[in-house]
Write a protein that binds this DNA or RNA. Structure first.
Length: 421
RNA sequence: GUGGAUAUAGUUCAGUUGGCUAGAAUGCCAGAUUGUGGCUCUGGAGGUCGUGGGUUCAAGUCCCACUAUCCACCCCA
């Protein structure tokens, strides 16, 4: 055991990669229906992008980023979330002058945060994310939430809750913060230390403090929804109406705020109540100021990020089975040099026809090869020896209890036998 | 950053108040009449007991330190 994967990272082993592939193909089928196109951005970005984009008072930026100086003396950071890079790409490539809205997704996007690992939390994890740029309409919010909702429904994930809130826009948030601070100021001394800091830097975050005493204080705090401006309220109400129309169930959570600074108006989370896993599977919302903040035009946006490892974990806990694909349709077993050569060319011809074929690479006995075929899940085995060579025919045996079949020793005959089943 | 638990074959784990060449199950390899998987039986390979100190006639077992992993908090996906 010379080397270990770095703390908080995880290998996807060959035997389990099909689970990821299932997830990825399911996602691709869904986003295609919404017309989203895939975007891929670098793992590294200039540190400044995240300071501006994510917000320099956030925990992510303050203590969780993998930041280093490269050989050219640039400060570089491994991306701690997907949105900032997507917005940078959008602005840098002038996509804002294309037909709007711009709808895109990313899949298996690596995200790095320096945290203490635990169940459902890694230092490198992967996200599926959706971004819709350019639309102010609550319909965009509804579409984005629909995508996440459809994914969970398709995968069979039950017992998930969509939590929804509005945290207002820059115009009305100040008014709410004022009200919140007034409410909190009388009990300021009872707040935990971090919340005392938050009181100055980001009072909204006090709402989702997990310390019991703070929870108690915050219980009767004013709700954002009671202070947002008419525009924000109308946006929220329309979004709720559209979700109702789409038959998507959600809960309004007045305490829901998010850890990234860029959110405006709509915020949402999709959470699981399952123990032994981190609750939040998916988090997102609207970030109308971010494109401008990062040097683009004034343009609204809405999106979400979804943790793929957590999703797989939840599916595991729910006992959702993902079918393992067939690895080999047929294993060819040859006895003697001529027969082995025949297997070799047959394999070539069968593969040319799209069949997955296995051959012995270990110089093992027929019996051992049969065992191996069984273990690797081959559908059929075909043993070729002297008799078969002279008859130009062999018996193809089903490894799954089906009938054995006589075939000619040519690719088409074998192919027909396999596909007929 | 804080707290708790654990560390013995590839894997999951036993290992008694310290006492002989460290075990099981599973997996892997090979055999059980010469060319046929699954079940059964037999045999084999595989461990410097996380690392480094200490106590002792004797340490997998007791003590200390370090490291790693897991879990929880914080935070987040």
């Amino acid at each position: 055991m010379a080397y270990k994967a770095p703390k908080g990272t995880k290998d996807v082993l060959p035997e389990e990669s099909y689970r990821w592939q299932y997830l990825e193909s399911t996602i691709r089928k869904i986003v295609r229906k919404y017309g989203l196109l895939e975007a891929r951005t670098p793992c590294i970005e200039h540190t400044e992008l995240f300071l501006r984009g994510v917000g320099d008072t956030t925990d992510i930026v303050q203590k969780e980023m993998y930041t280093f100086t490269d050989k050219g003396d640039r400060s570089i950071t491994l991306k701690p979330e997907g949105t900032a890079g997507a917005v940078r790409m959008f602005v840098e490539n002038g996509l804002f002058s294309e037909a709007q809205p711009t709808k895109m997704y990313y899949l298996y996007c690596p995200v790095f945060r320096y945290e203490r690992p635990q169940a459902g939390r890694l230092r490198e994890h992967h996200q599926f994310g959706v971004e819709v740029f350019g639309s102010n309409s609550p319909a965009a919010d509804a579409e984005v939430i629909s995508i996440a909702s459809e994914l969970f429904r398709t995968l069979g994930c039950t017992d998930l809750t969509i939590k929804l809130n509005s945290i207002g826009c820059p115009k009305c948030r100040g008014r709410y913060q004022q009200a919140l601070k007034e409410y909190l100021s009388s009990r300021y001394d009872e707040l935990c230390e971090t919340c005392k800091t938050r009181f100055e830097t980001n009072p909204l975050r006090i709402l989702d403090c997990k310390v019991d005493s703070c929870k108690e204080i915050v219980k009767d705090a004013p709700h954002t929804m009671d202070y947002v401006c008419d525009d924000c309220r109308a946006h929220m109400e329309e979004l709720m109406r559209l979700l109702d129309l789409a038959g998507i169930r959600y809960e309004i959570d007045p305490m829901l705020v998010r850890g990234l600074d860029y959110y405006t108006k709509t915020v949402f989370e999709i959470v699981s109540g399952m123990p032994g896993a981190q609750g939040t599977l998916c988090g997102g919302g609207r970030y109308d100021g971010l494109i401008k903040e990062l040097g683009g035009p004034e343009m609204p946006a809405v999106g979400f990020g979804l943790g793929m490892e957590r999703l797989l974990l939840i599916m595991d806990n729910l006992g959702i089975e993902i079918k393992k694909p067939v690895r080999y349709e047929v294993m060819l077993i040859g006895l003697g040099k001529d027969a082995k050569d025949k297997c070799f060319t047959l394999a070539r011809d069968l593969r040319a026809r799209g069949v997955s074929v296995d051959l012995d690479l270990m110089d093992r006995s027929v019996k051992a090869q049969m065992k191996y075929a069984d273990k690797t899940g081959a559908l059929y085995t075909l043993v070729i020896g002297d008799d078969e060579m002279s008859n130009n025919a062999a018996t193809m045996k089903s490894m799954r209890g089906g009938d054995s079949m006589q075939v000619q020793l040519d690719a088409d005959s074998i192919l027909n036998a396999i596909r007929r089943e």
